[in-house]
Nucleic acid binder design. Structure first.
Lengths: 106, 106
DNA sequence: TTATTACATCGAAAAAAATGGATTTGAAAG
DNA sequence: CTTTCAAATCCATTTTTTTCGATGTAATAA
């Protein structure tokens, strides 16, 4: 498979799991330390670490190191990029109201 | 896990696989019959059928039956719903410029 | 230094997703 | 009716993802 499709898939990989959806919902309330997320998610530390890695790989979440703590938050720029990507890949050429549609001449 | 997170995850499940990304890219060119997708994807019929089921479950793709053929296309309404959902779940309360942020009083 | 704390990584097992041939369904044609 | 064709479903296997205890790493505290 072409790497472009892997890259796109990686962004949405962050969003296709209910646990990561819940983590995102928790982060909507603002920046949270990993230890706080472990507690609120009720999962072992290694499991949360795994999910945070997937979330960060998508660019939607970023971690801020502060001493031995890491504070995670939703990155508005990453969110915007994901939204724009989703728009770009789910807009059919025939949806536009310009004349770029291949069927416009038929 | 709360069912709301499963529902959200299901939408993005359609987008987290490189094969489905490629199918979406093909559908951006306009409606396509399943047999055409099988040919262009180079995968067995049962595999394509599986991926189309995932894509349709997300609401982003819809199938139109015509005799014994099924024509698949990206549904603009489904696309819009997905984009709006993504926006809603990745916007932190602290990103808004109104006073609804919990930190606004600090 | 050693001890402790917070998190990442490892590694094996479990769970879930994907594959693909075989079969079934359902519609159109003969 | 039977045949044919397109697509869904079944099912066993393979692949990928997720889990979680154990271990490693890096920073702080004593």
């Amino acid at each position: 498979m072409e790497p472009i499709y892997d890259q796109r898939a990686q962004v949405f990989k962050a969003l296709c799991d209910p646990r990561r959806q819940k983590i995102l919902a928790l982060l909507q309330g603002g920046e949270k330390c990993a230890c706080k997320l472990i507690e609120e998610m009720g999962m072992p530390q290694s499991s949360l670490s795994y999910h945070m890695k997937v979330l960060c790989a998508s660019g939607i979440v970023v971690g801020r190191e502060e001493g031995k703590w890491i504070h995670y938050r939703i990155d508005p720029a990453g969110s915007r990029r994901a939204v724009e990507l989703l728009q770009a890949i789910t807009t059919s050429s025939c949806d536009t109201d310009n004349n770029s549609c291949c069927c416009a001449h038929l």
